[in-house]
Each structure stands twice: as structure tokens, then as C-alpha cells.
Design a protein around this nucleic acid. Structure first.
Lengths: 234, 234
DNA sequence: TAGTGGTCTAGACCACTAG
DNA sequence: TAGTGGTCTAGACCACTAG
């Protein structure tokens, strides 16, 4: 075969695990035995094992050996596309408010700032073929130099809005997903009935010291708009 | 410092990226230059770079060099704990139905089976301090040997129910998250008003050939029950 | 004490890129 | 053609495990 030696090792062990020839908690052969079995150097064996560690198949205990992981049943990769493919035809984003305001109790609490410190509020509506699909409200602590120019904000993701002061690479992003009944502002803007079910994605951005640097929610109208997540082993 | 050489390289490059000294798309020093700079062998440099590749900081183009990645704005790790910490005090799971039935159109469509093939339906209710927190309905194509004994099903996650025939390691799991208005069976079982907002997590399990081997939904009552997802760089 | 995994070296050859 | 990253070797020394 043309594939590298370390890939052959990866595939051999992976198939032993997926076929359940070896089970979670079992040890695999020692690195030296694998060297003999595949006729390769130890660095090559270790390169293969490193791949398996990264993909969540095995873990190692120094001085003891390499072991098969328990499968991760509860972990998924969620793709939350904030801009909702806004470059597609028929898709449109409207900026309905950008303001400097005093924080409400809820906003102050979530951004961990005193009530006399100002925040920027950004409200946007996402449309598809003229129909409102989502309503987005975001709060960012005010600081000199924060972009409040429409063109800098309208098509920006939440991390991008905050990125002037904090590197995106140094941010932690958190999501909470809930279902609420639409009322007041939300039902009006989403153009749904009071009481209709609305999917809420609450987003919080934290800096490297776990201090909040942005907070807000996105509200999705309609049954067809949902989020998707995937998990697999490879 | 006591940390290994390759970790020093990782930290040095990582801090250049988070401080935006080098930006997405920029090349980093060649491996040979890094060898000189850190006074280590090329394998040690490559070990450090491999860590950065795995963590999503850099990617490499053979023959050209290593480059800083665009930050991943839309990818999150979602922890969907199916059993809702059912080992905690006050938590309880009730199995309300296990049956072999003919599939409805919706079930047959999602499991990609003909309507004359039978399916197992499993309905469970999750309680906390006597209060209904979630209602779970799952469908699995019927086959000989499928566990339909209460004790094998009651505390099993969805992948575990299906795992008799398919290895968990070979499965792909998909989630869809939606908000709906409660009605009929769902509002009755969740003990909420008709029309109340309910969070729905639809789960589909696929085998290695992408054929569905399980489908169903979990319905969450109340505003306080939500899902959480996190994303960060490291 | 024998065996294990973790780190590291100094070399080699390869396919590929780009002037 | 010089430089790049990708694969691989045959050694070394280390801390740790477990009999």
C-alpha cells in the first residue's frame, strides 16, 4: 500500500476497537511489541498512537501502557452559524439599533459590570426572502475605540465585534440553548404570535481571564429553524 | 523551566498568535529556522507544531510552510448529557413504554425502513424531585437480540440501546435542536400547558455506512432546562 | 529489577513549491 | 535548484510502574 506506516498502525488498531476485539479499558500492545509487529521504529509507532490519542480512541498511562478509551457519549460538535449564510441570495441583515446605554440589571449581571458603566447594544434582524428568521441582541461593555459604525457591525459575528480589544484566539465562547414563549418585543420583531415557541441561543464571550466581554441572545422564529450538531469517531 | 522543549515552542508560537503579532494567513518560521532558534532537533520542532495543528492554531502546506489558521467562529463543543445526571439524589427515570410496533410514516422515513418492518419504541420520563423534567421517545429498527428487557433499557443512553448490534465507536450521532409548542401527548406527559414552549433535541444514530440505526426526540420542559456548549482555543 | 511510556537527537530520503 | 514540510530510523536517557 502507498499509505505511510504510521497510518497502517492507526487503521489496524482502530479496526480492533470498532470491531470490539479490544474493549474500553483494555490495554493495547506495548510500543515495543508494536515496533516488532509492524517492523518500524518506535517513533513511527508513537506517531500512530498520537493520532489515536487525538481522535479519542486511546489514552496512555506513563510507565504502564496505552489503553482503549471509554466512548464519549455526550460530546457533540455544534455548528452555530451566526451569520446564517447571509451571503446567499434572498438573505438580508438589517441593523435596527446601535446605541450606548446604561445596562439593565440582567445585562450588568451577565457582563459583570457596575450599572453606571455604559454598554453598546446592537440589535439586528436576519431575513430570508423578506421573512424574519431571527432577531439578535448583543451587549458589549463600552470602551474607547469600539466599532459603532454601521458598516463595521452589520455583517460582523459577535466575536468580531469584540475583537478590536480582544484577540479572537484568546476568547472563550459559551452558548446556552433554550426554548421560550414569544412576547412583547420578541414576538413583534419576529412577527410571530404571542406565546409561540422561540428558540433562544444565548451567547457569552469571555476573555483569557474568564471575564465577560460580550453577552446577548439570538431568537429564532419558526419550527423549521433549528441547530444541528454532529459527533462521530474520526 | 521544567517543561519539555516542544511545549516551549508551542507556547511561544501560541502567544505570538493570541497577541496578534502574527495573523491568520501569515506564515510562521520554517521548521529549520525554528530548530536554530530553539536549539532543538527538527523532530522536536515538528512535535510542537503537531500540537498547534491539533489545537487548530496552524496548518501546513507541504513544500511551502506552516500558516496561522483563520479562527473557527462557528464551531462549539456541545455536551448533551442524555441521562441528565440520573445518579444524583432526587433524580429518577421512569420507563413508561417499551413496545414492538409498526412505524408511523415519520418514523419509517427517518429510519429509512419500509412500513411493514417493525420497530422498538422506548418512552421514558426523567424526573427531578418528583417533577417531570424531560420526556424521551426513541425508535430502533427491530432485530433479534435487541434488548427489550426493562433493566437493560431504563438507564441506557440511546447509543447504548443500539450498541448490541453496532459498536459505539463506529456510530455517528446527530442532533437537531428546535423549539416547539407543547400539545397532546407531550404537554400531558411533561405536565405543562398546551402551547408552552418546549425544547426538542432530535437524535439520529447512523452506522458506518450512514444508514440510520436509531431515531427519536427528547422534550424538555421549563425555561431553566437548556443545553450548553463551549468553544475556546486550547 | 525489567518493562513502560515521554522526550530528544542527528541523521536520511522523499515529493513538492517556486524562482 | 534551494528550500519546504512528511516520513522514518536507530539510537539515547528519563521517570514511572509493579512485581
Amino acid at each position: 500500500m502507498g499509505s505511510p506506516e504510521y497510518i497502517k498502525i492507526v487503521e489496524a488498531i482502530k479496526s480492533k476497537i470498532t470491531s470490539e476485539e479490544i474493549k474500553p479499558g483494555d490495554a493495547i500492545q506495548s510500543e515495543n511489541l508494536l515496533c516488532d509487529e509492524f517492523n518500524v521504529s518506535r517513533m513511527t509507532v508513537r506517531k500512530g498512537l498520537a493520532v489515536l490519542v487525538n481522535e479519542g480512541y486511546i489514552y496512555s498511562i506513563p510507565g504502564k501502557g496505552n489503553y482503549v478509551c471509554e466512548p464519549n457519549l455526550d460530546s457533540y460538535t455544534l455548528h452555530f452559524d451566526e451569520m446564517m449564510a447571509s451571503d446567499k441570495k434572498g438573505e438580508e441583515i438589517r441593523l435596527i439599533e446601535v446605541n450606548v446605554v446604561k445596562p439593565s440589571y440582567e445585562v450588568g449581571f451577565n457582563l459583570e459590570i457596575p450599572e453606571n458603566k455604559h454598554v453598546i447594544v446592537v440589535k439586528r434582524v436576519f431575513l430570508s426572502d423578506g421573512q424574519v428568521k431571527a432577531y439578535d441582541v448583543k451587549y458589549i461593555p463600552y470602551y474607547r475605540g469600539i466599532p459603532i459604525v454601521e458598516k463595521e457591525i452589520r455583517y460582523a459575528t459577535f466575536p468580531e465585534m469584540v475583537a478590536k480589544k480582544n484577540s479572537i484566539f484568546a476568547m472563550t465562547k459559551k452558548l446556552k440553548i433554550k426554548a421560550i414563549s414569544a412576547k412583547d418585543e420578541i414576538s413583534q420583531i419576529l412577527d410571530v404570535m404571542e406565546g409561540d415557541a422561540v428558540l433562544v441561543v444565548e451567547q457569552k464571550l469571555l476573555d483569557e481571564k474568564d471575564h465577560p466581554i460580550g453577552w446577548g441572545s439570538m431568537y429564532f422564529a419558526g419550527d423549521d429553524s433549528g441547530l444541528e450538531a454532529v459527533a462521530s469517531f474520526d
